[in-house]
Simulated scan of single mutants.
Amino acid sequence: MDNDNKNQKLPTRQELREQREKNQPKKHHLVAWVVGVLATILVIAACYGGYVYHKTKSAIDETYDPTNKVTQDSFNGKESFSILLLGTDTGALGRTDVRGNTDTMIIATVNPKTKTFSMMSIPRDTMAQMIGTQNFSVHKINAAYNIGGAGMALKTTSTLLDVPLKYYVEVNMGGLEKLVDGVGGVDVDVPFTFSYGGYTFKKGKMHLNGKQALAYSRMRYDDPRGDYGRQLRQRQVIMSILQNSMSLNTLKNINEVTDSASKSIRTNLTFNSIMKIAKNYRDCIKNMKSDYLHGRGAMIGDASYQVMSDTELQRTSDIVRKSLGLSPVKLNNNETYQNSKNTDFDWNSSDSNQKYYVYEPNSDDWWNGDKLES
Rank of each mutant, 00 (worst) to 15 (best):
D181K: 11
P191G: 05
G182R: 04
Q231T: 06
I254P: 06
T200P: 00
E177K: 13
A215R: 08
N255R: 14
L251Q: 05
Q231Y: 09
N249S: 13
N253T: 07
S240A: 13
A215K: 03
Q231P: 02
Q243K: 15
L251W: 07
L214H: 07
F201K: 03
D223K: 08
D181H: 13
I254Y: 12
K202E: 14
N253Y: 06
Q236K: 06
G229W: 04
R225W: 09
P224W: 05
V257C: 04
N209S: 07
F201N: 02
N255V: 13
R233D: 05
A215Q: 12
N253M: 13
V190Y: 02
S247L: 00
L242F: 09
G175T: 03
G184N: 08
E256F: 04
L179M: 15
S217G: 15
G184T: 08
P191A: 02
V186P: 03
F194M: 01
R220D: 10
K205L: 00
A215N: 09
D222N: 12
G229L: 10
M239R: 11
E256I: 03
I238G: 03
R225H: 10
Q243N: 14
F192L: 04
Y221Q: 14
M219I: 08
Q231A: 14
T250G: 13
G210L: 08
K205E: 07
L242V: 15
N249I: 08
S195Q: 06
P224C: 10
D189F: 02
V183A: 13
G185A: 10
G204M: 05
Y199P: 08
P191K: 06
L232W: 00
G185T: 06
Y196P: 01
Q236A: 04
D187P: 01
R235G: 01
N255T: 14
R230V: 03
D181M: 09
L176V: 13
Q212A: 11
L208A: 08
G198P: 02
N244G: 06
L179V: 01
V257D: 07
K252A: 15
Y228N: 00
D187E: 12
N255D: 15
I254A: 09
F192M: 10
F192I: 06
K205A: 08
L248P: 03
Y228A: 01
Q234F: 02
K203L: 05
V183P: 07
V257Q: 06
H207A: 15
K203F: 00
M246A: 11
R230E: 07
V188H: 00
I238E: 15
Y228S: 03
S240I: 11
